[in-house]
Simulated assay, not measured.
Amino acid sequence: MDRPAHDAPLDGNAVAGLLGEAFAFETTLALVRCATCGRTDVVARARAHVSAMGAIVRCDGCDAVLLVVVERPDGTLVSTRGAAWLRAPRPADRPY
């Protein structure tokens, strides 16, 4: 069965606008859900352990690692492995 043209896969450039909007937000206001205990709160209420290399962000409920941010010469590496999800806040002026 032939797939309709609108279902044809595109390369990653097709999501540039979506990713640009998703990552252009006040990160401390983003909601994060802990994959370990299920607690959901804004990133600002998590506990951050910061060093010259980056940061480890831990759940305030169970102490599990939510996020790891590492500054590297080739860019910033962000791991969200301990987060079930991270939801960007939606600006009030967006129509959706």
Rank of each mutant, 00 (worst) to 15 (best):
M1V: 13
M1T: 12
R3Q: 08
R3P: 02
A5M: 04
A5Y: 02
H6Y: 13
D7R: 13
P9E: 07
P9K: 04
L10E: 09
L10V: 14
D11C: 10
G12M: 09
N13Q: 08
N13F: 04
A14K: 14
V15M: 15
V15E: 10
A16F: 09
L19T: 03
L19G: 03
G20T: 15
G20C: 07
F23I: 10
F23M: 15
A24S: 15
F25S: 09
T27V: 11
L29E: 07
L29M: 08
L29P: 00
V32I: 15
V32H: 01
T36V: 00
T36P: 01
T40Q: 12
T40S: 11
T40E: 06
D41R: 00
V42S: 02
V43W: 06
A44R: 08
R45V: 13
R45W: 01
A46R: 14
A46G: 04
H49P: 07
A52P: 02
A52F: 06
M53A: 13
M53F: 06
G54Y: 05
G54M: 06
G54L: 01
R58T: 05
C62M: 06
D63E: 12
D63P: 03
V65F: 08
V65I: 15
L66S: 07
V69W: 09
V70I: 14
E71I: 04
P73N: 08
P73Q: 11
V78E: 01
G82N: 11
A83M: 03
W85K: 05
A88G: 04
P89H: 12
R90W: 04
R90V: 13
R90M: 01
D93Q: 01
R94A: 04
R94K: 10
R94M: 02
Y96V: 03
Y96I: 05
